[in-house]
Design a protein around this nucleic acid. Structure first.
Lengths: 225, 225
DNA sequence: ATCGGAACGGAATCACCGTTCCGATTCACC
DNA sequence: GGTGAATCGGAACGGTGATTCCGTTCCGAT
């Protein structure tokens, strides 16, 4: 299912002179390596490790990402962009009358869990205000999630009080690191996703609301400062 | 609600001569400090921090816990013991005919989430074989969970295929670190717990099993080596 | 009052990691 | 083939944190 846009670097293809081509190639290699290494060892992995995995020297990593945090931040943006794209994709599919039993939100979460790319989507702690690219990607994601929720609510699959922030929280909840190989871990995560979805449908059916959760802005805001 | 056994050190009371009394007192202070500090700053907190919080020198910390990992390990054992005690407690309560709507498992998870003590109950990564005290505490916990599940299954609250390992996984799922003050974070976690419980009940009612998950031994084993 | 040893606190040590710096390399262009 | 600029790779620097070491303090016994 890898869409053509699955590469980590999404800028326009290179009409670039030779030397800069290598630079850019390295850039994407670094990003990909960072994703792998951080996914495997947590954010505590060393820059040297990332560089080694990317097959470049540490110097080259630092030329493009002035700081470790900048690198992590780039990955975060990538993750949010990816999620936003997935949300939009699913929303488009569900715009057609045909509809899977899980609902659009369920489909989104399912694919997000099994999606090949790293688990990065979780800010570490206190960062600065909130950089522009992240803000943009976040807004896009929000829009996508709104569509998903609107669809499922219309289909009577969601209880009242369920918001976009809930989807984000579920994303967090649904993917704790498990000491199992990828496939098994995914299976376990999906097992729980199904449970949650069943819970949502039950609540919706019985018309029991969820009560208030944070708003999108509260949720996003809480992660940044 | 703090039971008399809430102190972090549970050994027999000291018939001990003066100097050793201080030693033991320091020991418990260190453990308590470690729990606070690690809970607040994550396992990345420094030993110096722990020592400072405990009001002792680093040397004293190292006399009792030869290594940072040993200290973390001690906390882990404490956490499992505590969970085991809670499980047994809840199982006892539910042995009486009166029963809360959430079921015994729900009650256990609820209290585990809101229980004041740290979130530590999550092995970091690859450790050695599995030390005796941990093994013992783990066995005790397992027994308690079995009782909880037996109770709820008899009450028709759980679908087939739901196991003790599932409870452990839920514990993991249910408590990701959230950037909110404790009370709010707990509220969000409980919100999610209610959803999961509703899902379980729905599955049970509709008689839809969960499919196979890992056994207790597989689960425990996966965390240790 | 003095002595021996257990326990203490914190300075010194050592390894690791983020970051900086610089000489070597490579490529585009002459 | 030669030259300069853009890149590289990786050694060196500085800081942080785990761990070790040791002089000091305190208690209980003589």
């Amino acid at each position: 299912m890898p869409s053509p846009a699955d590469r980590i670097d999404e800028r326009a293809d290179p009409p670039l002179p030779g030397r800069q081509r290598e630079a850019r190639a390295n850039d994407t290699a670094v990003l990909a390596a960072a994703r792998e290494v951080f996914a495997a060892q947590g954010h505590g992995a060393s820059m040297a490790d990332v560089a080694r995995h990317a097959g470049v020297g540490v110097g080259s990593v630092y030329r493009r990402y002035p700081t470790k945090e900048a690198l992590v931040e780039a990955l975060r943006v990538h993750g949010v962009r990816e999620a936003a794209r997935l949300a939009a994709e699913v929303a488009d599919e569900f715009a057609a009358p045909e509809q899977a039993a899980d609902g659009a939100v369920g489909a989104f979460l399912t694919r997000q869990i099994t999606g090949a790319t790293g688990p990065i989507l979780r800010p570490t702690g206190a960062t600065g205000p909130l950089p522009k690219d992240l803000a943009d990607a976040t807004a896009e994601l929000h829009a996508g999630l709104e569509r998903l929720i609107a669809h499922d609510r219309a289909a009577g699959l969601l209880p009242s009080g369920f918001t976009t922030a809930d989807v984000m929280q579920l994303l967090l909840h649904l993917r704790p690191t498990l000491p199992f190989p990828r496939a098994e871990a995914d299976a376990l995560h999906l097992r729980y996703l199904r449970l949650v979805l069943a819970g949502l449908r039950a609540r919706a059916r019985e018309d029991v609301g969820l009560g208030d959760g944070p708003s999108w802005d509260e949720w996003v805001g809480a992660w940044h400062d």
